[in-house]
Design a binder for these strands. Structure first.
Lengths: 348, 348
DNA sequence: GGATTCATGAGGTACGTACCTCATAATATC
DNA sequence: GATATTATGAGGTACGTACCTCATGAATCC
């Protein structure tokens, strides 16, 4: 029961009674082959179950995948971790004919983004993963990239899906709904009426909006006794959020929960630990970071909704490669899951 | 800014002022090279950041990874899905010099397992992923495989970790704790005392035991008002479980939750839908299957604790390849997560 | 029916690595 | 100092595929 070798192009040539050159022409869709002959070859390919040896092909082609991650230049915990993951992958697949570069672009300057993307377009890049806010400028620049034959995926932050080849990240409405369900069920059921504080870095972000929509929908439909307050915008300013929280709690007697839509939850955990020890609030935040992990561990946070950064990075790479090769990929595998993390399933 | 090519063995030869043959001898640890020269070459490798092109090397070596999945021959939903995933991967990496076979072995016959493993040992197999109950016989057979230089990982079901190269699956104690936390918080907080029914296919399975331990620990420590009843054993018999549930509910007034430790939850969902509509129970089960998905959708199940089968299969393959090549793998990436699925984050 | 276009074959080189043989230089042995 | 031993170099072939050139036979055109 010797392992049957995989058929090679020579086997096909023999089977189809043509020369290697013709097989090559057919496989690589080069012109100058009669339809009849093409069919003969394809039949042989099918019959023998031939699958092109991609690594040999890439070797022959000197194929190297040039991928670029375009990221905002802030230094949030989320981003730091994302970059850590990119670098981890970079090392582990350096032997995989894949080169990954990271370009940081000023987060709130659409023009910088555009010029960076233009620059990328002029280089021999195969794929770009972009994490950036959607602006008219970014949409145009992305369209240019794609027109130049460069694969583009949106990372985490949702560009309109029609603009990119693929979106790598979670369904934020579903994430919000998940948070809503947890909030509704975690808040003690003996209370008759309660208010939920919602925080975010930027109200403008689509991600935050979608999460909020999902959250509101579930609470409205299934937990109508809980009243969701207007979103407080923090702009990444810890102290500001802290004071806003303080104010809100002071002005509202019946706050029972806090929902933080974006990462950067330092203010929340600090507040919980210092100010609100008297009343037990249910706290749900987004994105697993060192801070939110600690929050889970010391029970100041009840649940974290997150997306696995390693999975995101690897998925983006797989998709970019596939798009660049014009091969299919397994949608199922590339589905980024909305993950729920409690103290108990916090790995490590 | 032309992309710098990756250095090849020739570059190293030049850098180290030795011949290609010597570089080759050093890289492949062939004898007949002075220590001094070895050091020179290694210095050059380090200096140029050379990484062996694995695909070219595999091509030259005609390397093919022969992997075997040894699975129980029952036809549970869990197993069906696992096999589906294996086949999916098999297709997608058929071009990846990797061949995967599946061997089904009678679930409760250690001798059949042993003879199957012995058979595998005699073939040119590089790695084996085993999902089977631990028995003295299986431990010996696994040891034989490993002694023969074959990599072995345990799949889902935990062989003693010292016996295998790696365990691919979730931490079942953590999974049980997670279920416990959810149960504790999902059960309405206005009840003063309640009982939890626990079900499993087989009490003997380590997985079930560990989950139960984790579950009990959390409930004891954090939700002492909830009383966990002795585990009911179903042996995969739907009707039996159904009747056991019926009986238990009849004999206990204050049942507030059901926790099912193993997959195969048909009886549970049927029971919930038919019999227990009057009282609202909190239901938490393991393993995402078509049944449990439907349970989530129609709210007969509140939460599913699961491990992603696709992730498990792919992780097992990566680890087996790495072990077989004696290269390292990223533990972080191979960590299988305890996932919580609610209606809202149920993808699709 | 000679010129032109098209279809195919034959054969080569290259990619980066593995592995082989044979020659020769450097060193150790007695 | 001749001989045995060890270390290294030079050069080749192979893996499966891509891509190139040139030759030649077949079909088409006017």
């Amino acid at each position: 029961m010797q392992t049957r070798m995989r058929p090679t192009t020579s086997d096909i040539a023999r089977e189809a009674r043509v020369s290697l050159a013709t097989v090559d022409r057919v496989i690589n869709e080069r012109p100058g082959v009669k339809t009849e002959t093409v069919n003969k070859v394809n039949a042989a390919i099918k019959h023998l179950g031939y699958v092109r040896d991609v690594s040999a092909a890439n070797l022959a082609k000197k194929r190297r995948y040039q991928l670029v991650f375009v990221l905002p230049d802030d230094s949030s915990e989320f981003l730091t971790e994302l970059i850590r993951q990119i670098n981890a992958v970079r090392l582990s697949i350096s032997s995989d004919r894949t080169e990954i570069r990271i370009k940081k672009v000023a987060a709130n300057d659409p023009h910088k983004l555009v010029s960076q993307l233009r620059k990328i377009k002029r280089q021999s890049v195969d794929g770009v993963a972009i994490m950036a806010r959607t602006t008219p400028q970014s949409r145009d620049a992305i369209a240019e990239l794609r027109a130049a034959g460069i694969a583009v995926v949106a990372l985490v932050s949702d560009q309109p899906s029609s603009d990119v080849d693929h979106f790598v990240g979670i369904d934020n409405v579903a994430a919000g709904k998940t948070a809503g369900r947890l909030m509704g069920r975690f808040v003690p059921s003996n209370i008759e009426k309660g208010k939920i504080v919602v925080l975010t870095n930027s109200i403008q972000s689509y991600d935050s909006l979608n999460r909020r929509h999902g959250f509101d929908e579930i609470l409205r439909e299934e937990f109508p006794h809980l009243n969701v307050l207007p979103t407080i915008e923090g702009h990444g300013n810890t102290e500001r959020i802290y004071r806003a929280l303080e104010n809100t709690i002071k002005n509202n007697q019946d706050i029972v929960g806090i929902y933080s839509l974006s990462s950067g939850n330092r203010a929340v955990t600090e507040f919980i630990e210092e100010a609100a020890i008297s009343k037990k609030l249910t706290v749900i935040v987004h994105e697993l970071t060192e801070h939110s992990k600690n929050g889970l561990r010391d029970s100041s946070i009840d649940a974290v909704i997150t997306q696995h950064r390693g999975q995101i990075v690897r998925s983006a790479i797989r998709v970019l490669k596939a798009k660049s090769d014009k091969t299919n990929f397994d949608m199922d595998q590339e589905q980024i899951r909305v993950e729920i993390v409690l103290k108990e399933n916090l790995a490590n």
